[in-house]
Simulated assay, not measured.
Amino acid sequence: MGVEWLLVCHGLVTAVVVVSFLCGRWPIFEGTFIQRIHYFLTFGAYDYFLRFVGAVFGPKCTDAVLSVEYYCCDRPNPLLQIIYIVIIGVTYYFIAKSCFAYIPGYYLSGIHRYTSFLAVVVGILLFLLTSFSDPGTINTENVAHYISAYPYDNIIYSEKECSTCKIPKPARSKHCSICDRCVARFDHHCGWMNNCIGEKNTRYFMAFLLWHFLICLYGTVAIVLVLAGRLRELRVVDILTVYYGIENSFLDLAPNVVQWLLGSYNTQILLMVFLAIVGMLLAGFFGYHAKLCLTNTTTNEVPSTCNLQMY
């Protein structure tokens, strides 16, 4: 039983860390330990690390770390794009390796071997489309068009010039310091896409979030059905009922069933929990941006709410 509890504790700790890192600045977590963990992960731990490096290795090593930070966080780079491809590829590999042996099964037909692959391919295509599409770059040739499309209201937005691009700055646009360009209806710079999200590619970004939420939901439900099928095929509940006594109800046997599953299918359960957590995060991201789209607002125009530029 010790190993099973260790796996459960590991999953809970992982969930807390992931939620804290990605969602710690959400208003709902203000003043909670989730917010404090987020601050430590994103600021405190790094500050202590810099101090340690400076004390042990000297200022030159600190400057080297800051140079790496500048490249990774303040300039366009494919680091998070590579991480995304690795995550989705490795996750699908482990799902195929651990679950495909039981498909077709009691509840799932063999077609799910192919629909799962197709779902991942579509997700990657949406990722590439969002990453490499023009977000609405403003230049001297099209600035007049964007000024006409987004007129100044002289309340929030008034006529001004971009100090970097030296061209008029249309309303609702912003100069992205990372990409070094002005973007129409700027929402945020997405490190995962290595691209700004603006007027022209918001639709692709929304499709990416929705589709990946559906992939995670699909994967979670599929693994649940695989495990449920194994319970039926191996008649685990019947065997446990006989072993522990016919008077036991399923609820009484549930801890024993869970223990058996953790001992026999721990990889599948960890994958299921991982997909469920990521799916909930994606649902939150999609819901937030859907609300912005319905109110014709952008993340950049709501600075007081949670900043989702992490992803």
Rank of each mutant, 00 (worst) to 15 (best):
Val3Ala: 13
Trp5Ala: 13
Trp5Asn: 10
Leu6Asp: 05
Leu7Asp: 00
Leu12Asp: 05
Thr14Gly: 07
Val16Asn: 04
Val16Asp: 02
Val19Pro: 03
Phe21Cys: 11
Arg25Asn: 14
Arg36His: 11
Ile37Ala: 06
His38Cys: 13
Phe43Trp: 09
Phe43Leu: 10
Phe52Glu: 10
Val56Ala: 06
Lys60His: 10
Ala64Glu: 11
Val65Ser: 01
Cys72Phe: 10
Cys72Trp: 06
Cys73Gln: 03
Asp74Thr: 03
Gln81Lys: 10
Val86Gln: 06
Ile87Val: 07
Ala101Glu: 11
Tyr106Thr: 14
Ile111Asn: 01
Ser116Tyr: 03
Ile124Met: 09
Ser131Met: 06
Ile138Leu: 02
Val143Gln: 05
Ser148Val: 11
Tyr152Trp: 08
Asn154Lys: 11
Ile155Ala: 10
Thr164Arg: 09
Pro168Gln: 09
Cys176Gly: 00
Cys179Leu: 13
Cys179Phe: 03
Asp187Asn: 02
Gly191Ile: 05
Gly191Asn: 09
Met193Ile: 08
Met193Phe: 00
Tyr204Asn: 02
Met206Asn: 08
Leu225Ile: 09
Gly229Ala: 12
Arg232Ala: 12
Glu233Lys: 13
Leu234Met: 12
Val237Ile: 15
Leu240Phe: 11
Val242Thr: 13
Val242Trp: 06
Tyr243Ala: 15
Tyr244Lys: 09
Glu247Gln: 15
Pro255Met: 15
Asn256Ala: 15
Trp260Ile: 09
Leu262Asn: 06
Asn266Asp: 09
Ile269Asn: 02
Leu271Ile: 10
Leu271Asn: 01
Val278Trp: 07
Phe285Arg: 02
Phe286His: 12
Tyr288His: 10
Tyr288Val: 12
Leu292Asn: 06
Cys293Gln: 14
Thr295Ile: 10
Asn296Glu: 15
Asn296Trp: 06
Glu301Asp: 13
Ser304Gly: 08
Gln309Asn: 13
Gln309Asp: 15
Tyr311Thr: 11
Tyr311His: 14
